[in-house]
């Protein structure tokens, strides 16, 4: 089930890069961090810990390092 974003829809987001998030296409303006792009569309957990507790992005400044994602495609 989709968890609504915890942030308001962006009036200035416009269209931009389209990507797949949990099987559905979403768009993000160029320059967004991956974390921002995901948070804009979903309030769900990013991952589960080894003890199976849900976690999402927390600090947005590279301190907690818990919003790490795997990258399969590199920007040109």
């Amino acid at each position: 089930m989709k968890t609504a974003s915890r942030f308001l829809a962006r009036p200035d987001a416009g269209s931009g890069i389209t990507m797949m998030l949990d099987g559905a296409p979403v768009t993000a303006p160029p320059g967004d961090t991956v974390a921002a792009a995901v948070l804009a569309h979903s309030g769900a957990a990013f991952r589960r810990t080894e003890k199976d507790t849900p976690r999402a992005a927390y600090c947005i400044m590279g301190v907690c390092l818990r919003s790490t994602v795997s990258r399969t495609v590199r920007a040109a």
């Binding site: 942030f7 962006r10 600090c59 947005i60």
Partner: peptide
């Protein structure tokens, strides 16, 4: 999920316009 730091929210406002 849903608990974040205030600084995180401010950075998302500055960099991504997320409110």
């Amino acid at each position: 999920p849903g608990v974040m730091s205030a600084g995180a929210a401010q950075l998302l406002m500055k960099n991504a316009g997320l409110l």
